Amino acid sequence: SPCSAVRPALPGYLVLCLAVQAHSLASAQFSVTGPDHPISAVVGGEAVLSCHLSPRMSAANMEVRWFRSQFSAAVHLYRDGQDQNKEQMPEYRGRTELLKDNITDGRVSLRIRDVQPSDDGQYKCFFESSVSYEDALLELQVAAFGSAPDVFVEGHQDGGVRVVCQSSGWYPQPEALWRDLQGQHLPSDSEKISPEASDLFQIEIAIVLREESNQKVSCHVWNPRLDQERESTISIAGLFFPRVNPWMVSLWVILAVLAVLITLASYCSWRQHRAKGKVRK
């Protein structure tokens, strides 16, 4: 170093050395920048998270670490010019790749393959040189587009037909509703969301249809994160609706009339019997 040749007794040269060192330290400072919006990915697909240094400088000899909540639990680690797979979290092993084509310009990207619902959330992109370190926060939003709704008649209920709609394989939790032929929303009789394997969700909604109301309805299941929906329609034939047998109605009317007549006859007979008793006295 030029400063090593300068004697400490010379204050002018000492000031110069301090200025050179301060300039070197300042030039080593950097910031890390990531995207200013969430990165979207579909379950089973790929996600690419990118970040870069400002000002532009080479990161080939730096440590580049991707992690989530804990610094020591690495999603991916690059150090000493190579990937350090042994320090990687088990759930990410074999699924990540650091894209280093532009690492000499301070730009890197992390590719995550076979995206899982558990990958959803925040990540930190961390750079460390010999004199400085910085990081940037990124967000990955994972979504899964579930199955087409399965709509079927479950049975009779409350004088109508209970129709059920089921759909599975959604992430995050989906929303579901019924619509009539005119597209008007119909209130559900019940709704249930259940967790499935691999952190996915199943949804089930039900409605009771009556013959005088809607016989053709559609079930819509919607992923709010993807802003996409699946739809299935069902038509209920009139014969499925519970009907009242006219002969049964007539029978009940006759029985009711007979009951009234018997009551009146009994009362009249009692009155006559009472009247005869008074005459005899």
Results as ranks from 00 to 15, higher is better:
residue 6 V to M: 02
residue 6 V to I: 07
residue 9 A to G: 13
residue 28 A to H: 09
residue 35 P to I: 12
residue 35 P to N: 08
residue 37 H to S: 15
residue 40 S to M: 07
residue 41 A to S: 02
residue 49 L to W: 06
residue 50 S to V: 01
residue 51 C to L: 01
residue 51 C to P: 05
residue 59 A to V: 05
residue 64 V to Q: 04
residue 64 V to K: 01
residue 67 F to T: 01
residue 77 L to Q: 00
residue 81 G to R: 08
residue 87 E to F: 14
residue 88 Q to A: 05
residue 89 M to V: 12
residue 90 P to N: 03
residue 93 R to Q: 10
residue 98 L to I: 10
residue 99 L to H: 11
residue 100 K to C: 04
residue 102 N to S: 12
residue 111 R to N: 04
residue 111 R to Q: 13
residue 112 I to D: 00
residue 113 R to M: 14
residue 119 D to Y: 06
residue 121 G to Y: 00
residue 123 Y to M: 02
residue 124 K to F: 15
residue 133 Y to D: 12
residue 136 A to N: 04
residue 136 A to C: 11
residue 139 E to R: 10
residue 139 E to I: 06
residue 142 V to D: 05
residue 145 F to K: 12
residue 149 P to F: 06
residue 155 G to Q: 09
residue 157 Q to S: 15
residue 160 G to P: 03
residue 166 Q to M: 03
residue 169 G to T: 04
residue 186 L to G: 01
residue 187 P to A: 12
residue 188 S to D: 14
residue 190 S to I: 00
residue 198 S to E: 03
residue 199 D to F: 13
residue 207 I to A: 11
residue 210 R to P: 07
residue 218 S to M: 04
residue 219 C to M: 07
residue 221 V to C: 02
residue 226 L to W: 05
residue 226 L to N: 08
residue 229 E to C: 08
residue 230 R to M: 09
residue 233 T to N: 07
residue 234 I to V: 09
residue 240 F to N: 00
residue 244 V to H: 02
residue 255 L to G: 11
residue 257 V to H: 10
residue 261 L to C: 15
residue 263 T to W: 11
residue 265 A to V: 14
residue 265 A to E: 14
residue 266 S to N: 12
residue 271 R to Q: 11
residue 272 Q to S: 08
residue 273 H to V: 00
residue 273 H to I: 08
residue 274 R to F: 07
residue 276 K to G: 00
residue 277 G to T: 07
residue 279 V to R: 14
residue 281 K to G: 04
residue 281 K to E: 10
